[in-house]
Design a protein around this nucleic acid. Structure first.
Ligand code: MN
Ligand code: MN
Ligand code: ZN
Ligand code: ZN
Lengths: 148, 148
DNA sequence: GTTGCGAATTAGAATTATTCTAATTGGGTG
DNA sequence: CACCCAATTAGAATAATTCTAATTCGCAAC
């Protein structure tokens, strides 16, 4: 049994048609490279680095360059289709999960999505004075996750 | 009128004697470079980068090297006297505020400490399954702070 | 007081993720 | 078809940090 988000991902993933549509809806001109990069992020819901995305998309787009992968990822981040996740000084990781969530960074290098109940971000926001303009709140856990 | 933390900082700051003691208490051999670096972090409670620390300590220790500044900061972080703070891919910043707190990253580059009420970190911890071993929780706000 | 030791410091080279540059490509429009 | 301009590309440049290998330092043993 699958959650709503997963179903959505699967649907988008399997319709190249829809990928272009989603990009366009977010103001991103759907080039083939952008479609390939975005599609690869939707297909495997982990948190790959630019290099890992590069490796994955080469199969579908053998002539794509690493610079283009960076360009595509930047555009997707700028248009809120993808989130860039940073942990310590490790290479930036990319996340296509648009639901508000936190990240758990395992000591072995895995990065897991952690659901945040609706009120939690508001509660955190409440720690700041009213006259602060908050654009983003980031919650990162670090530790050891069970091996499973 | 000042808070307890500030008083403590001030006291430590003005007694080179005490700085060495604090280092030793935390298992750090108090070399003159480490004392100078740690002292500089206590004196100005902002969030300097390694380069900024380097610039500041040169006055007191004109022969110190940047490599040593990095070494000292690493040792202080390893022994929990200082926290390393990362935001996006900006140079790592260092924070001598040991009270649990969050960070607000201003769009103009300032970094502010945000107090966290006692229960908040526990509440966040509660979002994870019991069998996760959590070593650290990081909360970063991003946005615009009033100019004041 | 000198010597010996291991840790710390140092200068500079190396690393590496990312950004920049400048040339080329290519999809859509007239 | 030709034009346009954004996107793509290969490769060079950048910059924070780490590494390397040599030197210095503080301290204890003698
Ligand atoms: Mn880690
Ligand atoms: Mn910022
Ligand atoms: Zn995520
Ligand atoms: Zn801080």
């Amino acid at each position: 049994m699958q959650g709503l988000i997963d179903l959505m991902a699967e649907t988008s993933t399997q319709n190249p048609e829809r990928i272009a549509e989603v990009l366009a809806d977010h103001g991103v001109r759907p080039t083939s490279q952008r479609e390939t990069v975005y599609s690869s992020l939707l297909q495997k819901r982990d948190h790959p680095t630019a290099d890992e995305v590069f490796a994955r998309v080469r199969e579908k787009a053998p002539t794509i360059s690493l610079a283009t992968v960076y360009n595509c990822l930047d555009v997707l981040v700028q248009h809120n289709l993808v989130k860039a996740v940073n942990f310590e000084r490790a290479p930036t990781q990319y996340c296509a999960n648009l639901a508000p969530h936190a990240h758990f960074h395992d000591e072995e290098g895995r990065t897991l999505d952690i659901d945040m109940p609706a009120g939690m971000f508001e509660q955190l926001r409440g720690l700041l004075p009213q006259n602060f303009d908050v654009k983003d709140i980031e919650v990162n856990f670090h530790g050891r996750a069970p091996k499973s």
